[in-house]
Design a protein around this nucleic acid. Sequence first.
DNA 1: TACAATTTGTAACATTTATCACATAGGTGT
DNA 2: ACACCTATGTGATAAATGTTACAAATTGTA
Lengths: 208, 208
Amino acid sequence: MNRDLKKLFPSFSNALVEEIDANAIDRAFVAGDVIMRTGQYIKNTVLVLSGSIKIYREDDDGGEFFMYYLQPGQACAISMICATKSETSQIMAKVVEDAELVMVPLPLMDKWMMQHRSWYEFVIDTYRSRFEEVLEVVNSIAFRAMDERLEFYLKRHQEACGCMDLKLSHQEIATELNTSREVISRLLKKLEQRGALKLHRNHIELLK
Amino acid sequence: MNRDLKKLFPSFSNALVEEIDANAIDRAFVAGDVIMRTGQYIKNTVLVLSGSIKIYREDDDGGEFFMYYLQPGQACAISMICATKSETSQIMAKVVEDAELVMVPLPLMDKWMMQHRSWYEFVIDTYRSRFEEVLEVVNSIAFRAMDERLEFYLKRHQEACGCMDLKLSHQEIATELNTSREVISRLLKKLEQRGALKLHRNHIELLK
DNA sequence: TACAATTTGTAACATTTATCACATAGGTGT
DNA sequence: ACACCTATGTGATAAATGTTACAAATTGTA
């Protein structure tokens, strides 16, 4: 088993890492896989070892609104929050870069809260940081027009990939912001004219 | 001390109730009081004994977007989440009906997580239900137009007050949905014409 | 009662966003 | 090269929302 939990989750105690190694299972996913669907029962808490996952909020008409990224060293807050009650998922999770995940059965997730201080702190911190991230998203849609929301969206994708080249089509962006492709094309054009980025087919080169 | 914690928080163990009685302090607020501001340091976890509190998300230009109600028997999730790191508040809390609150010092909040199972479960459940409520709010602003958002807003206020008569001015509603008063007046008029409600000065009578 | 302040109604207009229609460009496979 | 598919560009128009302006109704108060 080539998990290097200690490197990705440096706050975990040795005892906790041993417990995870002994009880959790690894699973590999490829880009495009949906690892959690809205309404599905949650059976595991998910830790990310590698790859990149996008979390969406869905509506009844097939809309997929982008919420946030899940990156290596992070855990799915929703799967933790639902743990105690084994609730259904309120979100949809899609793999965007081939990913390796650690699946922790829910009863263990709950048990460790009392037994491992480092697990407890990790869970609480995951809750807190995701809650704050969602509140930032609320601000962007509650207070800002589409042009600013697009810039916010691009910035978050830039942070997630750590690069200046975003592999996104206009249609993809439009879907994830719940607007139409034409609106995104026009707003991107304006950003290009302002010198903020350069448009290419299937990718966007950020210039600042 | 006339706290009746056992009635409002039936899940709390006797030992926990005793600890709260011994260590937390009560504070009374009147309608209009702001008990927590964006950016302020959080020193306590707040339990609600009576009254009604509204939680808002603010923006830089003075906008106040309504998030959810805090009611008797509930606790402020934000003040719990920030506990371990003593972070600053991401939200603003305003009293809308005179309220009595129990203020639990943050170090105790954290300590009890390990010592009182009923406290731990209460905190986790508070996190979970607020997270879900915020996700519902995200859906309403990400996917729906103002007419449906208004109906969603009215429904939540109806649930909070448990009555058919909402004491709200059009301007108040507009502010809390981050739109203009005229838009709300027009949409309310349409709802009145559809027979969903009856408009009065300073209050709205719901008919269904 | 008279006056002031607040709330609500509404028209006219500007801006933003959504929708429809279609052209153009780039890439793929034969 | 050619056909074909997808992505992008763009104009025309519709619909929703924001803004400005002002009138009317209600309430509080001097």
